[in-house]
C-alpha cells in the first residue's frame, strides 16, 4: 500500500532521518558542520539537488534503461550539483568558499544517489518530490543541529553571534576533525537513547 505524500515527506524527518538513522552521507556531515550557517547552507544545497534530481529521475523513469540507470542518475545529479555550484558562486560566494570542495562532492553523497535509486526511479513525481524534500530537510536539520553543537562548544558562538562573552575559552577541539567524529558519535548515542524507548 503506497503511503500518502505527507507520510513520504514526514518519514525523512525522523524515521529515516539521515545521517542518524541511515548512516550515510557522512563526509559533508563531518566536514562542514563547524558552524550552524555552514551546516544549513550545505543542507539546503543538498536538499535542492535531492529535490531536483528526484523529480527529474521520476519524470524520466520510463525512458532510462535500467542497465545504465546509475550512469544516468550520476549525470542528472552532477548537472544539478553544478547548477548549485554556479548559483552559490553567484549569490553566496563566502559560503561557497567555506564549503569548498564539498559542494561538488554532493555528487557522490550516497543519500542523493540512494534516493534516486530507491525511491524516485519507482515512484511518480509528487511522492518523489515529497520524499526528496523530506529527506533533504531532515538532512539539513541534522547538519544544523550538529553545526550548532560544534559551533557553540567549539567557538562559543551561534550564527557568528558571541554567546558567552570574551572570558569564554572555546573548546576548539570540537571544530576540528576529532571533535566532529566524537560529537556525531555522541549525538547518535543520544538518538538511540531517545528513539529506543
Amino acid at each position: 500500500m503506497a503511503k500518502s505524500i505527507t507520510q513520504e515527506f514526514v518519514k525523512g524527518l525522523w524515521d529515516e532521518i539521515p545521517p542518524f538513522r541511515l548512516v550515510l552521507g557522512l563526509c559533508p556531515v563531518l566536514a562542514v558542520t563547524t558552524t550552524v550557517e555552514n551546516g544549513l547552507g550545505m543542507g539546503l544545497a543538498t536538499t535542492f539537488v535531492l529535490v531536483c534530481s528526484n523529480m527529474l529521475v521520476s519524470l524520466l523513469r520510463d525512458i532510462i534503461p535500467s542497465k545504465v540507470r546509475i550512469a544516468c542518475f550520476i549525470v542528472i545529479i552532477a548537472t544539478f550539483v553544478t547548477v548549485v555550484e554556479l548559483l552559490m558562486q553567484a549569490f553566496t560566494y563566502p559560503l561557497f568558499l567555506k564549503l569548498g570542495i564539498f559542494i561538488p562532492l554532493i555528487v557522490v553523497n550516497c543519500i542523493v544517489l540512494g534516493r534516486s535509486e530507491a525511491f524516485a526511479f519507482k515512484n511518480p513525481v509528487m511522492p518523489s518530490l515529497a520524499d526528496g524534500l523530506g529527506i533533504g530537510i531532515g538532512f539539513t536539520l541534522s547538519l544544523a543541529a550538529l553545526g550548532a553543537v560544534r559551533e557553540i562548544l567549539g567557538s562559543g558562538t551561534f550564527f557568528n553571534i558571541s554567546l558567552f562573552g570574551p572570558s569564554f575559552q572555546p573548546f576548539s577541539l570540537m571544530v576540528e576533525a576529532p571533535g566532529a567524529f566524537i560529537c556525531l558519535g555522541l549525538m547518535l548515542c543520544i538518538m538511540n537513547l531517545v528513539g529506543n524507548k
Binding site: P65, K67, V68, C72, T79, V83
Partner: peptide
Amino acid sequence: MVVIITILCAFSGGLLAAV
C-alpha cells in the same frame, strides 16, 4: 543505452552552459 546517455549528457551540457 549509448544514445540515451549521450543525449542526456548533451542536454546536461546545454543546461549547464546556459546557467
